[in-house]
């Protein structure tokens, strides 16, 4: 069970890192790198990068949904230790994460990038940074709640009980 919990958290972090780092690369680094290339080469390189980015994003969305659902299930009992604050952070984290996924999928769905792709990518980057901020605050509150109520936390989590059975 420990391996599954660690793997799930690792994959969640890695998928988020690839999605945010990839968006930053596509929106900031690549356009500057291609600034001096001629228009035809610039478009061709951008489209090829976009195709690779699309495959990365689809994999990341799947991993984020699966590992996010598992992590929530695993931590749900702990969130009860400070319900108002943890839910106030978990809800917006999930909603903003889903919003960013929808925007990314809409941006990458057509064969050619839509007219609003630059604005969309920048908005998505801001949403993703806020989502990470909410996750950081949620982790901090979760840690504080466990420290302040160590005895209240179940020693055997329902998921572990399930695995033991």
């Amino acid at each position: 069970m420990a391996v599954l919990i660690i793997l799930s958290r690792w994959l969640h972090v890695i998928a988020a890192i690839l999605a945010i780092g990839g968006t930053f690369f596509m929106r900031v680094i690549l356009p500057l790198g291609l600034a001096q290339a001629d228009a035809a080469s610039r478009d061709a390189v951008f489209l090829r990068c976009r195709r690779a980015f699309k495959m990365v994003i689809h994999t990341c969305v799947l991993l984020l949904l699966v590992t996010g659902a598992f992590n929530t299930w695993r931590n749900w009992d702990d969130y009860r230790l400070d319900r108002p604050l943890t839910h106030a952070l978990w809800g917006p984290h999930m909603l903003l994460g889903l919003t960013a996924m929808v925007i990314a999928l809409l941006l990458l769905a057509p064969r050619q990038p839509p007219k609003w792709h630059r604005t969309g990518a920048m908005i998505n980057l801001v949403i993703l940074f806020i989502t990470v901020l909410l996750a950081s605050a949620l982790k901090y509150v979760h840690d504080q709640a466990l420290r302040n109520h160590p005895a209240k936390t179940a020693t055997t989590h329902p998921v572990e009980k399930l695995a033991q059975n």
Partner: peptide
Amino acid sequence: IVCTTLVVGGTLFFEFVVPIA
């Protein structure tokens, strides 16, 4: 986390995506 995304994501795209593109 944000700095990690920029370093790791940037490295991955530099290594895998740009050479192919």
